[in-house]
Amino acid sequence: METAVVQKHVTALPPGSDEEQRKLCFEMFNEYWADAVGKGIPFDTVGTMSIAAALFALVAKHGPETTAEFVQDLAKSVLQDEFTSQKRAN
């Protein structure tokens, strides 16, 4: 997977705080996601391809070891319900 597309969009972000850039990126990603689903691409396919694209970009920038550490930390966050809007009942 080519990371040039990711790099092109990242460098095109306007100057501003990290938080402002994250908000803009989140809004752009949500628009992309809605557009892809609206064109008939299954929700799960958009999700898995988004994760794969992100991993390719992270490995290209930070290397496999650092990316693997990030993914391990991310797995812990998922298991701790940090990515759910509702917490599970215990």
Rank of each mutant, 00 (worst) to 15 (best):
V46A: 00
G38V: 06
V37R: 01
E31W: 04
T84E: 04
L79Q: 15
I51M: 10
R88I: 14
E19T: 07
T48P: 07
K61F: 03
V59D: 00
E31R: 09
D35T: 10
D35S: 09
P42G: 02
E69L: 09
E82S: 06
A89T: 15
T67F: 01
Q86K: 12
V71W: 12
Q80W: 05
A75G: 11
C25K: 08
T84K: 11
R88Y: 15
M1I: 13
S50H: 07
K76N: 13
D81I: 04
A54H: 09
M1W: 01
A53I: 01
I41G: 03
A68P: 02
M49N: 11
E19P: 00
P64V: 15
D81A: 09
T11E: 11
E82M: 09
I51N: 01
A54Q: 07
L79P: 06
K76F: 09
V37F: 03
A34M: 07
R88L: 14
F83S: 01
G16F: 00
L74H: 15
S50M: 03
I51E: 05
A53S: 09
K61M: 08
Q80R: 14
G16N: 10
E69S: 15
A36Q: 12
V5D: 07
N90D: 15
A53K: 02
V59M: 03
F83K: 03
I51Q: 05
T84W: 02
N30G: 07
K39F: 04
R22G: 00
C25A: 14
A52Y: 10
L55I: 14
L13K: 00
A54P: 00
Q86I: 08
A53N: 02
F83D: 03
A36S: 10
F56L: 05
R88V: 12
E69T: 10
E27G: 05
T3M: 08
K76A: 14
T66Q: 10
L24A: 04
R88Q: 13
A57V: 02
E31K: 10
S17C: 02
G16V: 04
H9R: 06
L55K: 05
T67D: 01
H9K: 08
A75T: 15
V78H: 09
